[in-house]
């Protein structure tokens, strides 16, 4: 086998690589909690009556600076969000940078300042790190690991029939903004990435309805909302029905994706959470999200159904229902 770009594209082919090669090659995969086999956003390690949550994320975004953010902000947010959607308050981050020879030092400083700012927003300290320089012309890759603590870890597989699905804001911003910027596609309004840490959104909901009432969470990064919902549906063996018109999408993102022929549901978000909660707590959860800076555009987008286990359906008004499939390849590569 030769590794192809598709193997990292977040689709079926990547899933196969993870399951057939990575999971099968490793044997010690759990530290007593949620381990590698779960392919969740992070792992858990029981710690007294709480749980440590541990996660890592490599960032290879192109270009390094983009409207609304840069690789530094992305690297901090990505890992903080993986902790957050496991229900963990971020405790500390580790930062590994792999830098290509010839990289501009001013750019490096800019990226580090941005990391610092983003980490302060959470807040979370960056407590350890590693720096390598290689001769390959890679620009810069940033790998961040994070550790957090959860009273009650939230998986992405806990959806129950009758539950309600929420998103914390507009969908598709990061992927569409990046693609437009990168390809020099001029739209009337410049699109901006949503890259941001969302711990405050998760924490607000937990305070409002209690950790026990968040049945499942996921950050819809690579593969977008489509992929996140499909994973949540298949892991819980339930169906998910969403109403297309209820999914918040910025008009400019909608327009751009209409013009490109790329669905905003299929591209990455870097500052959003998809949350599944019992129906009786849905309104409260929504209120809580909307009360935070990052959750103003939160919405209830659908529900968990019994029919069609493992699949996601979209209701499109008079057009009836269609299946929402996880994107096959990567419509927008190198975004995170």
């Amino acid at each position: 086998m030769k590794i192809k770009l598709e193997h990292g594209a977040g689709g079926e082919i990547m899933e196969e690589l993870l399951r057939e090669v990575i999971l099968k090659s490793l044997t010690l995969k759990s530290a007593g909690g949620i381990g590698l086999d779960a392919l969740d956003d992070g792992a858990t390690i029981p710690f007294g009556d709480k749980h440590l949550v541990f996660t890592i994320d490599g960032h290879t975004v192109k270009p390094l600076f983009f409207p609304g953010g840069d690789i530094g902000r992305l690297a901090v947010s990505g890992t903080v969000n993986d902790l957050a959607v496991m229900g963990a308050k971020p405790l500390a981050l580790a930062n590994s940078m792999i830098i290509g020879e010839g990289f501009d030092g001013e750019d490096l400083k800019r990226i580090l300042r941005s990391m610092d700012e983003t980490a302060r927003e959470v807040p979370v300290p960056i407590v350890t790190g590693d720096t390598k320089v290689v001769e390959d012309n890679i620009g810069m890759f940033v790998i961040t690991a994070g550790i957090g603590i959860a009273e009650r870890p939230i998986t992405d597989s806990g959806a129950e029939v009758g539950d309600v699905v929420l998103v914390s804001g507009t969908i598709g911003d990061h992927g569409i903004a990046l693609m437009s910027h990168r390809e020099g596609i001029a739209f009337e309004t410049e699109l901006e990435s949503d890259v941001a840490p969302i711990w405050e959104v998760v924490e607000a909901v937990a305070k409002a309805i209690g950790w026990e009432n968040i049945h499942a969470m996921k950050d819809p990064t690579r593969g977008g909302l489509s992929n996140a919902l499909n994973e949540m549906a298949s892991k819980a063996n339930v169906g998910i029905l969403i109403r297309e018109s209820d999914v918040p999408v910025r008009p400019e993102v909608r327009a751009a994706s209409d013009m490109l022929g790329i669905s905003p549901f299929d591209v990455a978000n870097e500052g959003k959470v998809v949350m599944i909660v019992p129906r009786e707590h849905a309104e409260e959860a929504l209120e809580a999200m909307r009360g935070t800076g990052r959750g103003k555009n939160a919405a209830i987008i659908g529900e968990v159904i019994e029919k069609y286990p493992g699949r996601v359906l979209v209701e499109t008004g008079i057009g009836g229902k269609r299946f929402l499939e996880p994107p096959a390849g990567d419509p927008v590569p190198r975004v995170c």
């Binding site: 390809e183 596609i185 001029a186 739209f187 009337e188 013009m259 490109l260």
Partner: peptide
């Protein structure tokens, strides 16, 4: 017109 220009870019850069 905006979309027309986008299509031209799509063709030039093979975007989607």
């Amino acid at each position: 017109r905006v979309e027309f220009n986008v299509v031209l870019t799509q063709l030039a850069k093979e975007v989607n």
